[in-house]
Design a protein around this nucleic acid. Structure first.
Lengths: 224, 224
DNA sequence: CGAATGCTATTTGTATACAATAAGCTGCAT
DNA sequence: ATGCAGCTTATTGTATACAAATAGCATTCG
């Protein structure tokens, strides 16, 4: 995607993710155009894309609003995600190459290292975690699956609380990855799928907790 | 969506589905604009949408081509579809209302009627079949699931052969629906999911057969 | 007082002109 | 012949002007 269009997309997306654009609030093309320093044309492109990704919804008269997801919607998304990632793991188990396995091991070692120290480096953990999952998705070798997972992995949920991932959870994630590695090594798709399902379900509950906390904070802010 | 934009979208989409725009061929915005009698702006909107739906793909320099799916890709899509529809059936089993069940029965009776006659009315069958599945999807009550299923239900596969659905298959579909109805009635999500999986797998094989035949024909046409 | 109607302001949709980029070609050099 | 440079043409990207639609408001009529 070319310069202006891509800039607009990234800007708007991150404004939604960061909560700068509040869930439920209306969006006007021209306002965004000014914010992004481009014309309405690339903004419109971005809005269409974000609408497909369900970051934005439109009412019957084509006005756009930042999507506002309830806890139920969040669970719904995670249910879908668990199903799709498990499917990916199953496919990957029979297709993954030695080299890909090597990379999985590398990223898992790195993310362990990121939290096995006095001052845990959470961003580093998240980055290697992301890459770990990306490799599995690549090994699954299904373009459609990848495109669908893209729609449920990045949640448009505002987390004002500075993402307090508790270490215990991160360590468990690391162990899940370890087990996935063994399942892959043994080419056991069923096992890989089962581990992955649990892995994502745990992520959901961690997320849900953060989401409730955040919602509380937002509510009390509104009351004040 | 407003007039010009919607017109463009429907036109282009049906040109792809009908094979008027051949798989693999390049698409030029201006040409389509003329064909649809609108300017490039709504055409570009449509192309973006069709790209998200994987009817169209773009190369690295942003040129658009009609997607060309292999038999493997087709199977991939059906695998995803089977998984998602089974999931929908499972969710629907615990949420479906008496009224929705009534409509399911109605459409299933209608589609049976459409093929239980000397001159089977296949389009009528397909229409009621579509509505049958739509009701289940609605009962599943997951917007994201619906949006994902939209991406895999309408296959951008050219079927030049005038869709020779054999009657035996259609009858079996009807029986699957019957069984789904019982499963729903008993609120047995597992059963519903299992029946649905088989139902979609059968559809895949019917489709795959038609696809191979079509590919043969296309090849011999090219040779001539 | 409430509902309906028409006006105005706001917002989105479409067309078009122009800019940027990529593809294809021509001719030259090796 | 082959490959590369530079030009030309084809195609997409962006901005902008204008058209259409919609919402919000005020005014009027029942």
């Amino acid at each position: 995607m070319s310069r202006a269009s891509e800039r607009a997309y990234n800007n708007i997306r991150s404004m939604i993710l960061s909560g700068e654009l509040q869930p439920g609030s209306q969006i006007r093309e021209e306002a965004l155009a000014e914010l992004c320093g481009v014309s309405r044309t690339p903004v419109r492109d971005s809005l269409r894309r974000l609408e497909a990704e369900m970051f934005i919804r439109r009412n019957d008269s084509q006005r756009s609003f930042v999507a506002d997801w309830s806890l139920d919607d969040l669970e719904d998304a995670f249910q879908l995600r668990a199903m799709l990632e498990a499917h990916a793991a199953k496919r990957a188990a029979s297709r993954i190459t030695r080299e890909q396995l090597g990379w999985l091991r590398f990223h898992n070692a790195q993310l362990k290292q990121a939290i096995d120290m006095p001052n845990p480096d959470v961003p580093k953990f998240l980055d290697h975690n992301r890459q770990f999952h990306a490799i599995i998705l690549a090994a699954a070798a299904s373009e459609r699956l990848a495109s669908m997972l893209g729609q449920v992995t990045e949640q448009p949920v505002v987390l004002r609380t500075a993402r307090q991932y508790d270490l215990e959870n991160l360590r468990r994630s690391h162990h899940d990855h370890d087990e996935l590695l063994i399942a892959f090594d043994k080419r056991d798709g069923e096992w890989a799928a089962a581990v992955m399902t649990g892995h994502i379900r745990r992520a959901f509950h961690a997320y849900a907790e953060a989401h409730s906390t955040d919602t509380e904070i937002r509510k009390s802010n509104l009351a004040a």
